[in-house]
């Protein structure tokens, strides 16, 4: 029997996010088995990294902050090592010790009407410093130098999980598919009709989150960070839910940042720091890097892209 391949899809809540796994296959049962394996892999990563459970490796590290180094799995060690490299790259705009923020001082929410004073802002982010995450490769240990410091993988974990799920699927012979972790997605292969996957980018202004543009991609990952879901208006200016780990102030200026990269972990991990660094510094960073592209929409609806993106007009219908 020769059935033409179709897309098999499943949506599931994992790591606190909506994951959507799509697999191209001509065999529905086999596709389902593959998706099961991918979900099992994401759940495994969730248990490893979550900050909501005391026995996760993340919380074991956090519990020993300022006390002693903690031995972790090679997988977690390598993820932290890569995170620190991204922190150096982004001048600290990406920092997995972001969780050290002292929310008792100033808790940002959408009802806020004033910014913290600069002293409070600085105290807020006092413990955020990736340089105080000390790794020992021989012992495979992680040590947080300051008491009260906390790490978390909110800025990279989703992308890492998507990429691992993709690996599991490819190992099982899935030649084409998409793993979408709440908008951070990784694609490989092609659509059943042999064409490249088409990915839309949400219009940060529309209420229905319609795509304002689209891209044809394959074997590439996309992640978008935006302040359009959660933001506060203070003196008529939009502030994102994200706090700049260096200044302690909420980030403003950009509505959305989309990163394209060959893997979802990098795309996920770079979207927020570009948002924090702003158009000028952010684009300068991305333009220097090979194999990474970036699309920015600022508060004035200006569209900025890295030099490797060509803006094309819509094809005539």
């Amino acid at each position: 029997m020769n059935v033409s391949p179709g897309i098999h899809q499943r949506v599931q809540r994992l790591m606190g996010n909506r994951f959507e796994i799509s697999v191209v296959s001509s065999d529905a049962n086999r596709a389902n088995d593959c998706i099961d394996a991918a979900i099992a892999e994401i759940s495994r990563i969730e248990r490893l990294l979550t900050t909501y459970s005391d026995d996760s490796q993340t919380n074991q590290i956090n519990a020993q902050a300022g006390i002693r180094p903690v031995q972790v799995d090679q997988e977690v060690f390598a993820l932290i090592e890569r995170s620190l490299r991204l922190s150096t790259l982004t001048q600290g705009a990406f920092d997995i010790s972001y969780g050290s923020m002292d929310k008792r001082l100033w808790n940002f929410d959408t009802t806020l009407t004033a910014l913290p004073d600069s002293k409070t802002a600085r105290r807020l982010v006092r413990l955020i410093n990736y340089r105080n995450i000390l790794l020992d490769a021989n012992q495979r240990t992680v040590f947080l130098k300051e008491k009260g410091m906390r790490i978390g993988f909110g800025g990279i974990g989703k992308g890492y999980a998507a990429e691992q799920a993709k690996r599991v699927l490819r190992e099982r012979g899935v030649e084409s598919g998409i793993v979408n972790a709440a908008g951070d997605l990784t694609t490989w292969g092609t659509q059943p009709n042999g064409q490249a996957w088409t990915i839309g980018i949400a219009d940060p202004n529309g209420t229905t989150r319609q795509a304002f543009s689209y891209l044809e991609i394959s074997d590439m990952a996309v992640a978008t960070s935006g302040n359009y879901e959660k933001y506060a208006l203070i003196n008529g200016k939009r502030y994102a839910h994200t706090i700049d780990p260096k200044t302690g102030y909420p980030v403003s200026g950009l509505k959305s940042v989309t990163i394209l990269a060959p893997n979802a972990e990098l795309a996920d991990a770079l979207a927020t720091p570009v948002m924090v660094m702003g158009t000028r510094v952010g684009l300068d960073l991305i333009n220097q890097m090979r194999h990474i592209a970036c699309i920015i929409i600022d508060d004035n609806d200006g569209l900025y892209t890295s030099t490797n993106i060509r803006i094309a007009a819509p094809a005539k219908a």
Binding site: R170, W188, S213, L260, P262, N263, I309, R310, I311, A312
Partner: peptide, 21 residues
């Protein structure tokens, strides 16, 4: 790295089209 083999990188080296609506 499955996703970042040589073939994908050469594709990426050429520019990407962003199609506006």
């Amino acid at each position: 790295t499955g996703g970042i083999g040589s073939e994908q990188l050469t594709d990426f080296a050429q520019s990407i089209d962003l199609v506006l609506k």
